[in-house]
Computed example of a mutant assay.
Amino acid sequence: MKDTQYWRRKSEQCLKHSENSFEYRQLMIEALRTQINFDAYCCTLTDAHTLFSVGAVTEHSIEAIHQEIMELEYAVEDMNKYEFLVRSGQHIGRLSDSTSQSFRYREVLEPNGFSDELRAALIYQEQCYGFLTLFKRAESEPPFFQDEDLALIEIVMPIMGERLKEFHHYIIEERLPTVEGEQGIVIIDKELRVLSSNTKAYELLSILRKYESLTEWQVPKPIQAICASLLADSYNTNTSLIVPIKDTGYIAIRASLMLTSLQEQQIALLINEASSREMLNFLIMAYNLTPREKEVVFEIIKGIPTKEIAFNLGISHYTVQDHLKVIFQKVKVSNRNELVWKIFSRFQLD
């Protein structure tokens, strides 16, 4: 089995030949295929806060059942759910260890000819930036993933996690090429079929589909994830997600559950360029600011002077100055005005 150094070198090679995270993930999957026998795959880039997908590289046979898998992920208790792998610290799971207990296996995978599934959370610095899922078909030899397959994926997980963090938090300077001053609105039913949309929403949906190389009728993975979560938890009446698209801009998706006069569920999606408020927490994580540095930044944005920040946070004037020096270095600015512009003001919508 190839060791950690081999996979670090391979990751660097894949990175050099990639213009975006999709190409990187595709190349890494191809490299894994030379070492592990699998028949299908899905590799998702995730938002570290919500664990929602912000885009997936998916083999076509999985694409056909991806929505079913996503719905079950939020709707039923099952083996090796992605959130469980992250929260429990287990990080990797093989479905053949417990297929008889898996609703997902019985209802979706087995009827579609799959005999096993291997899931791995791509963790870096205790945050999850993606999920790698490999599948075997019943006719494969052997039809189940072996212990050495899991050991290899455990080596690769943090290496891919580190790279996906860099892709997800790449700072994008561009603004979305859409109509200013208009809200993008889409109404979809519980089967995720578009019932209606305005022009701006249509344009942004097209950008999301192009980002994942989807056809016009396919639903982008971020929308699948956010809607599946919403439909599974009717008490959670709305939720949101930011999708960064390199060389294009940041798309903010907000979803709210609605009921028709006949008590049928529908979902209203607001799809727009991310606002300054929506971007703030995203950028704080992108610049690796600590919780205390985050508190200082929030005070700076309000225009509060250093002495008052010290009083509000219960720290000394000199400690605030020390925090500011570190924040300026991380964000690559030289003063407060530049800091506020870089992480807040420039994302204000007209």
Score class of each variant (00 low, 15 high):
residue 207 I to G: 04
residue 114 F to S: 06
residue 76 V to I: 04
residue 78 D to N: 11
residue 220 P to N: 11
residue 346 R to K: 15
residue 296 V to Q: 00
residue 322 D to V: 03
residue 184 G to I: 14
residue 239 T to F: 06
residue 109 L to H: 09
residue 203 E to K: 12
residue 304 I to E: 00
residue 331 V to R: 07
residue 145 F to I: 15
residue 311 F to G: 00
residue 291 P to S: 02
residue 265 Q to D: 07
residue 280 L to C: 06
residue 140 S to D: 13
residue 306 T to D: 00
residue 270 L to I: 11
residue 12 E to Q: 12
residue 146 Q to L: 13
residue 189 D to L: 08
residue 32 L to C: 12
residue 110 E to Y: 08
residue 229 S to A: 10
residue 109 L to F: 13
residue 3 D to Y: 07
residue 8 R to F: 03
residue 217 W to Q: 10
residue 334 S to F: 04
residue 187 I to L: 14
residue 80 N to D: 11
residue 200 K to V: 15
residue 160 M to T: 13
residue 45 L to H: 02
residue 235 Y to H: 12
residue 7 W to Q: 10
residue 184 G to V: 14
residue 219 V to T: 15
residue 75 A to R: 12
residue 291 P to T: 04
residue 175 R to S: 04
residue 174 E to M: 02
residue 294 K to G: 03
residue 31 A to W: 11
residue 194 V to N: 08
residue 327 I to V: 08
residue 186 V to L: 09
residue 187 I to V: 14
residue 113 G to T: 09
residue 56 A to V: 14
residue 246 K to L: 15
residue 194 V to C: 15
residue 306 T to F: 00
residue 139 E to N: 11
residue 192 L to H: 09
residue 24 Y to I: 13
residue 303 G to H: 00
residue 152 L to R: 10
residue 265 Q to L: 09
residue 168 H to Q: 05
residue 162 E to W: 01
